[in-house]
Amino acid sequence: MTHGTGAPFGLCEPLPHRLGKQPKPVTLSAAPRYLQVAGACNEPLAAPARPSQVFWMLNSGYFSDSCCSHPLSTPAELEEKDALGVRHAACRCLQAELGIPPDQISPDDIVFMTIYHHRAKSDRIWGDHEICYLLLVRKDVTVNPDPSEAKSYQYMTQEELEDLLERDARGEAKVTPWLRSIAEKFLFKWWPHLDELAPFMEHHRIHRV
């Protein structure tokens, strides 16, 4: 659990944040170097590919960010310095949810961008209220999602993600509220600058979304 400043003050099970308390999740978008239909590739395409990111469909049918979870109460995942704890947590979640082999991803591969305070109502009962650490990965990896976590996954260019959000607005597709917030307020601004992200890193700011 965290205060509104992001400072941790205790532990919780996953349920309480649905009732208004704020856990500290890890939200991650994976950007491979090259785009290939049906997943990440180990070799570049013949022609230069536009930067793409991987998004996955939850079993509920909603498209979401590449990975979203919470750090465990372990020394490695509670380390605050340089967001090392949440980067360790992201590695664990990428392995568990997207099936990325441990030898293909490490905390050093993960870029901590910023923090945001997220609230979203899902229906009359459920909602989200979280302090989120936004992370990026740009690497070729093998993706083999856990079928209990993801129905499918897809690499998208910025234009394709914009189209998905438009289709969601028309009721023709479904995206999670946090994916829309992340895309519109952060990802679309960062996307053209994946080779030079330093100017966009705001480690000590909490964006109120």
Rank of each mutant, 00 (worst) to 15 (best):
K151V: 10
V26P: 05
E159Y: 08
L165Q: 08
P107D: 03
I100P: 00
L78A: 09
P101R: 05
H204A: 06
L58C: 09
D103A: 01
E162P: 00
G20A: 09
T176C: 15
M201R: 15
L11S: 08
G10K: 05
Y133Q: 08
L84T: 06
A89H: 05
A90I: 07
M156S: 02
V141F: 07
S64T: 15
S60D: 14
P145R: 08
E79T: 14
L135I: 05
L164E: 10
F200Q: 02
D108H: 05
L197C: 04
K121W: 01
P71R: 03
S148C: 07
I100S: 00
P71M: 10
K174A: 15
G6T: 00
Q36R: 15
H203W: 11
P71N: 09
H204N: 12
Q22H: 12
W56F: 09
C12N: 12
H203V: 08
A173V: 07
V111P: 00
K174I: 03
K24T: 13
A173T: 11
R124Y: 05
T5Y: 00
R208H: 15
D82Y: 06
I182V: 15
G99W: 05
T2W: 04
P25D: 15
S64N: 08
L11R: 11
K189D: 13
I100N: 01
A83C: 11
A120S: 01
A89P: 06
R92H: 10
K21F: 13
T2V: 08
L35T: 13
V26T: 12
P48W: 04
